[in-house]
Structures are given as structure tokens and as C-alpha cells.
């Protein structure tokens, strides 16, 4: 422990719950995998740039390799052509993992209610947090991040999440 705190503790031992300490670590070191397909991805770029600075929330290590990430941010429209790729990438991410659907398109198909657009990515993969907006403002991305952090706080390391999910491609 830093800050010289440990000096005051002497030989004593700290006890905590496993869930608490693991979740604490997970919350503040989310590594996003940005699945950016469309306009919303531009607003994600803004969320990452200096003015909004996503690193204030510990999530600035943006990975494009799903194997190194635990937070999937789906920024943009998902077409039926794209859906199998989305699913494949999601599956490549190691557990535990969380998914944010950014924007109207990812959440529900948005203004594209037509033959080529998936009407919400939750028909393909499980989603934890939805962000409204077309596109959402960068602050909304940060808000979603906080919501994910809150959710992580209440979870248990012993429970497998989303085991029973079945989407249109399963």
C-alpha cells in the first residue's frame, strides 16, 4: 500500500471479501474494445480525446484486440452482414466481459428500420448498458462507463454471467 499508510498498520492483517477486492480492481481498469462501425465511433473518439478524457475513469487503454479487452463498446449500426463478426469478436473476449450498446442504432436499429439493419445488438449478444442518442454525447459514454462500474460492484466472481443467452445467430 502506498502513501506510507502501511507504517501505521504495523504487523496487522487486512481482511476483505474476495468479491470486493476483485471488483474494485475490475471497475477501475476496464479495457475497452471499440467495435466502431459508424457515426457513433466519431463521438467515441471525442470521448477519448483531451476534452472529455476517458482516462479519468481508468478506461483509456483502448484495445482493438478482443483478447486483451473486457469491455465491448459497440459504437454504430450493426447490419446483418456485420452481425456474425460482432458475435465472433464478442466470443473472443475472455470472461468476465461487459457490453455497452452506444447509440440508437446499436440499441434498437435506430432510424434504420429496414432490410439490412439488426434491430438492436441484444438480439445477437447480451448487453449490459444502453446509451440513448444519435449519436450520444461523449458525456453519455462516460455515464455508461460509470453504470458499468456500478454494476461490477454488485457482481460476484463466482457467478457466470450470461450463460443462458441465446441470440439470432446461436
Amino acid at each position: 500500500m502506498a502513501l506510507g499508510l502501511e507504517a501505521g498498520l504495523g504487523d496487522s492483517v487486512l481482511t476483505t471479501k474476495l468479491d470486493a477486492v476483485v471488483n474494485w480492481g475490475r471497475q477501475y481498469s476496464l479495457w475497452p474494445m471499440v467495435f466502431g462501425t459508424a457515426c457513433c465511433a466519431i463521438e467515441f473518439m471525442s470521448a477519448a480525446a483531451s476534452q472529455h478524457d476517458i482516462s479519468r475513469f481508468g478506461a483509456e487503454v483502448v484495445r482493438f484486440s478482443p483478447r486483451q479487452a473486457d469491455l465491448m463498446l459497440v459504437c454504430g449500426t450493426i447490419s446483418y452482414k456485420q452481425a456474425p463478426i460482432l458475435k465472433r469478436i464478442y466470443e473472443q473476449m475472455p470472461e468476465p466481459k461487459w457490453v455497452v450498446a452506444m447509440g440508437a442504432c446499436a440499441s434498437s436499429g435506430g432510424i434504420y428500420d429496414n432490410y439490412c439493419t439488426v434491430q438492436g445488438i441484444d438480439t445477437v449478444i447480451p448487453v449490459d448498458v444502453y446509451i440513448s442518442g444519435c449519436p450520444p454525447r461523449p458525456e453519455a459514454v462516460l455515464d455508461a462507463l460509470i453504470k458499468i462500474q456500478d454494476q461490477i460492484r454488485t457482481e460476484s466472481v463466482l457467478v457466470d454471467r450470461n450463460k443462458d443467452f441465446k441470440g439470432i445467430l446461436d
Binding site: 462501425t37 447490419s79 452482414k81 432510424i111 434504420y112 429496414n114 439493419t117
Partner: peptide, 23 residues
Amino acid sequence: IGYLHRGFEKTAENRTYNQIIPL
């Protein structure tokens, strides 16, 4: 290509001229 094909043209055939501006 085509991964972001969102049916602009078909959707436009089903909107009024001003409604297409957001598209």
C-alpha cells in the same frame, strides 16, 4: 465492403423529402 449498408436508398423511398435530411 457493405458492412455498414444501412439501406439509405430504400429508406429514402419511404420518407418525405425533408425527412431524408437526417439520413
